[in-house]
Design a protein around this nucleic acid. Structure first.
Lengths: 109, 109
DNA sequence: TATCTTTATCGTAATATTGCAATATTAAAA
DNA sequence: TTTTAATATTGCAATATTACGATAAAGATA
């Protein structure tokens, strides 16, 4: 098949999975970490930071953007990318809640 | 291609991506949430909870196990699965740190 | 206007993922 | 020992992902 049966899971489960899937590639982790490391948005420059060809980087940026993890704004003939705080917060909250429930359990295995 | 160029990224980036990739599927999110919801390890029962055939569920469980997100111990002819706390904590710490850095930035876009 | 720079898109090859039927495995139960 | 129950593995079809060369698009600059 190759296609996930998303219709059988909750909206929330699908949304969570989509966010994490977008981060589930080393290049996209590297992009996020690079955007974080620099103290402002990055115009250009991302391609030179990564060991991948320009079209490949562009594709990864698109995926991160589709997932809502980054924003891009046009700045002359370059494009400024930066992290969308809200998406990261959503993920953080998810794992915070998850972790609290784990700690309450205390446990078997 | 279809294969990620992992050799060009750091160990940490690859490891982070691998963990998040394992969670980047609604069925695997559903499995984790089900394991969390119940107050102990689950022996059997997981297949009945999910809208997928038994071999498919088994495959997803295998991936979660490979990623270190769950543990499975044999219990008679059934298998007890439960969440591996350490993996979740690793992820939580990653996003905690990430979020702290984001907040320090305050920001441009 | 012509050219340069930056980013996106198209097309395509290689590989990975998803899902399931059929079957194997393993241990309990009859 | 045969049967039953639970889970894993195999094999395969359908689809998705990853990567990149070639090319397009769009604004800046000469």
């Amino acid at each position: 098949m190759g296609a996930s049966k998303t219709e059988n899971f909750t909206e929330k489960q699908n949304a969570t999975a989509a966010l994490l899937k977008a981060l589930g590639h080393p290049a996209r982790i590297a992009i996020m970490e690079y955007l974080l490391k620099t103290n402002a948005c990055i115009c250009g420059d991302i391609v030179n930071e990564l060991p991948l060809a320009q079209p490949t980087v562009s594709q990864h940026l698109k995926e991160l953007k589709n997932a809502g993890l980054i924003k891009g704004s046009i700045e002359g003939n370059a494009i400024c990318y930066c992290i969308d705080d809200k998406a990261i917060q959503k993920i953080k909250q998810y794992f915070d809640a998850f972790n609290i429930k784990i700690e309450k359990k205390k446990s078997c295995c």
